[in-house]
Structure formats: structure tokens, C-alpha cells
Amino acid sequence: MRPVAAPLEPRAVVVLDTRPVEEPPEVAAAVTQVVRVGFGVVAVALDVVLRSLEGDRHGPGRGDRRSPVVDLADIVVGTAWGAARLSGRVALTGSRLASPVVAVVVRPPGVPAQLQLGNRLGVLAARWRRDRPGTVLDVERVVSAVVDQIDLDLLAAQVLRRLDTDTLATGVLRDVDLDRLMSDALDQLDLTQVVLDRVDLGRVIARALEQVDLTATVMDNVDLVQVAEYVVTAIDLPEIIRESTGSVASEAVRGLRMQGVDADAAVARAVDRLFFRRANRRTPEETLPPQVADGPDPARDPG
């Protein structure tokens, strides 16, 4: 990144120009690249044409013999490729030899800088660099307009129809790290929340239970004896049985006790009425040791 000084103001700050610096390419390398691209285009075009011809020739029962047209095309293109390589070397050598002369011609000594051809060319190049982003934007606008006019859905459908999706899927499965892809995707998702929001868990569980023999699963996987021992221990079942059978199991005993309780209450009400008492008796539970330990207030307790 290249630091660029902001205009000098009292509160000026230095901002960093994040635009990449584009170095002008070497002329020889650029020419070489252009030539290679040109040959690449020719090769692709020839490949398309020759493949169509080969498709016609390799029809049913025609065998796999190489077409002479292909050989002829390879000879022509190979000759042109060799000539281009030779021309490139000659041009490279010539440019190296001519570069001092060109330098003198472009920037002749004794000529004012404003009148030097090199400087004029530099100005033109700088102007082009300045205007180039605008032209790129124009291209993007044109491309966008063209794309807007195209039915991308139809285009995609046609592309997909012509694609060998099996091969494509195989290639994707071979080249893509699906584990890492899924892991990254899951890292960005709150999967639990997604499931809670979008899955009918009751229905899922109901369907799962329909397909699973839960009883058999429990019988096979759970130590029921251990569970039973745990429950019996947790609720102290022996103590419950002992209490139930030892004290309150008999209906006769239970009835006798309840009748005794009712009789106690009846007698207490009768006595209280006899002594014109209005307040209920104070018979608190003896489960409150602090109050019971000291006993009720003697002043209010005639007993």
C-alpha cells in the first residue's frame, strides 16, 4: 500500500491508498503473451471444428482412425507456432540491439523535455491509465445490460442440460473437501436453534417411535434390574411397605382412628361451647420444635 498525503489542513490525516500499483509490462513479455493467447484461441477454435468433424467421421461403424484434416491442421498450426517463436526471438534480439538507438531517438540530448517524443508518449500513456477505469466501467455496464437481456434461467437450464452432471458431481466430490465444507457451514449455523425452529419434533419423535419397538429396545439396552434397585432404594420402598402394612393398612383401624379424631373434635367443641369459648383450640403440630419446646403461653393456657 502506498501512503498518500492528504491536503494540508489543521486536522489532516494520512490515508492509505489501497489501490494496487500496476506496473507497465515489459514489451517483449506482452508481445509473447499476446501471441500465446492468439494461438490458444486458434487452438480452441480448431479443436471445436475438428471435434465436430471427428464426430461425423466416428459415427457407428467408422472406426477410430485419425483424420488427415487433423494432421494437416496440426502441421499448419505447428509451422505457424515455430515461425512465431522464431519471430519472437528475432524481435527480442532486435529490440535489445535497437533499444539504445530508440532511447536516443525518443529522448534526444539537447532537446527540451517538452519536445521530447518520449515525454509526449509518457503523457499519452498516463492519460490512458487515468481513463482506463472509466472504460472498464463502461464495459461492465454494457455487459450488465447484455446480461439483463439474457434469460439466465433458460441459459442455466440449457447449460445444465448439456452438462454431464454425473461427471461434474464426481469431480466435485473428488476435488472438494466436503468434511471441511460441512464443518465450516455448521460452524456458522446454530444448528440446534434451526432444528428447534423448523422441525416438528413431536411429529419426528412420534414417527420414530412408530418405527421403533421401544419396549424391545429398553429390554435389550437397559439394565432393568439395576433401574428397579435404584428406584426401590431412592424411594425407600421397604420403609413404605413397613409403614403401610404396620400402621394404616387395615380399614378397620383406619376407620377407628378417624372416628376417634372426629369424636375428639366433637367433644372439644362441646366443652368449648360449655365454657363459652369462641376461639379454636391451640393444638399446633409438634413439628415446630422452637414453639413447642417452650410450650404455649402459660398465661393463656389453663391446662
Binding site: 409403614e243 383406619r254 382412628r257 376417634g260 369424636a263 375428639d264 367433644v267 372439644a268
Partner: peptide, 20 residues
């Protein structure tokens, strides 16, 4: 788990009367 019948639970711990 309280083995005492529900109807008798409220009186548990309360002072008994003269009849019983």
C-alpha cells in the same frame, strides 16, 4: 411418599383429644 391416608394427613402431629 407418605403412607398416611390423605384425609388424615392434616391432623398428623396435632395434639390428640380426650376421646382417642
Amino acid at each position: 411418599i407418605d403412607p398416611v391416608p390423605v384425609e388424615a394427613r392434616p391432623i398428623q402431629g396435632r395434639r390428640a383429644g380426650v376421646v382417642t
